[in-house]
């Protein structure tokens, strides 16, 4: 398995290279540049800026320069946030996004699995419907509604928690809930579905027939199989959560990196967008590997050669 993991990681290098190349040229084909803003710039000024940032050079040259810098660990200067380099910006925000995303992911996994299992065990009862209802609500009501409502209720009206900002643990509670809620919903539904299947499968039936206590059967046998779809969902979900969520970050004014994904693109901050692309690419590769390994661990039928 270790050999497999290593091979996958080495194999990921060309993948990441293709991603970077595709993203770089895709971005440049899009109309508009980093200096096209509400306030149009004077022609001379624009020329000076383009020269300062090397935008006046041929595209392949810029691409080569970018790759050269990247290999040396330099992601270049941000086109918009001119006092910082992209890797500095990302290094500032990434730990915060990771902290938020990880907490939300664990919370979602725990609560989601619990709810899903509960619903499956009591299929077509009130408990089941209640779980589905909660889950549906979690998916229906988008972040941009949930997050401001949470902040309004708990910060402005009740004054229990801070409305925004980053620094102490109390400021983490509301954003984590807002981030976790939709994931709880998804995981609960996926687990419920596969749990029902697993409970009916023969080895669980057999285990029950052997007289094993039902709780143990659920935990040991059924859950192991039932969590599989949730695990394959976790790969993309983790990448999405860890790279932050633009809405939650904006609503709670958090200094994470999530907002750079959309804003960077809207600002045409080329280097910053490339930075986010690299991060996503790495996350996707790593998390998919983890998911595949987890799969092999949870389901002995799956084998990688």
């Amino acid at each position: 398995m270790l050999v497999y993991a290593l091979r996958r990681l080495v194999g990921a290098i060309p993948t990441i290279f293709i991603i970077i190349t595709a993203a770089f040229f895709m971005m440049r084909v899009a109309p508009g540049g980093p200096f096209d803003q509400e306030r149009t710039l004077e022609a001379t000024v624009m020329a000076n800026l383009n020269k300062t940032f090397g935008l006046d050079r041929p595209l392949y040259e810029q691409y080569g320069m970018y790759l050269g810098n990247l290999v040396r660990g330099d992601m270049g200067p941000s086109f918009i946030y001119r006092d910082k380099r992209v890797h500095e910006i990302l290094a500032e925000g990434l730990p915060i996004s990771m902290q938020l995303g990880m907490t939300a992911l664990l919370l979602a996994l725990a609560v989601g699995t619990l709810l899903g299992t509960l619903a499956a065990l009591r299929q077509n009862t009130k408990t089941d419907y209640a779980v589905i209802a909660v889950a549906t609500f979690g998916i229906t009501v988008p972040n941009f509604v949930v997050a401001p409502v949470l902040s309004l209720v708990f910060a402005v009206i009740l004054s229990w928690l801070p409305a925004q900002g980053w620094g102490d643990w109390r400021q983490m509670i509301l954003p984590v809930i807002a981030l976790a809620l939709p994931q709880v919903a998804v995981i609960a539904r996926l687990v419920r579905g596969s749990m029902i299947e697993a409970l009916r499968s023969d080895h669980v039936r057999t285990a029950r027939a052997y007289g094993l206590p039902s709780r143990m059967v659920v935990v040991k046998h059924a859950l192991r199989a039932a969590i599989l779809p949730a695990v394959s969902y976790l790969g993309p979900a983790a990448a999405a959560l860890l790279t932050g969520s633009i809405v939650v970050e904006q609503v709670f004014n958090l200094p994470g990196i999530g907002r750079y994904f959309v804003q960077g693109a809207l600002n045409r901050d080329y280097t910053l967008v490339m930075g986010t692309v690299v991060i996503v690419a790495v996350f996707v590769v790593v998390f998919n590997l983890i998911v595949d390994l987890l799969y092999a661990m949870l389901d002995p039928r799956v084998r990688y050669d």
Partner: peptide
């Protein structure tokens, strides 16, 4: 100086006294 890209966030922070 706190940067508020979302104006409604600033309003809530103001209402909460932050």
């Amino acid at each position: 100086f706190l940067p508020f890209e979302e104006r409604a966030t600033c309003v809530r922070a103001w209402e909460a006294g932050e």
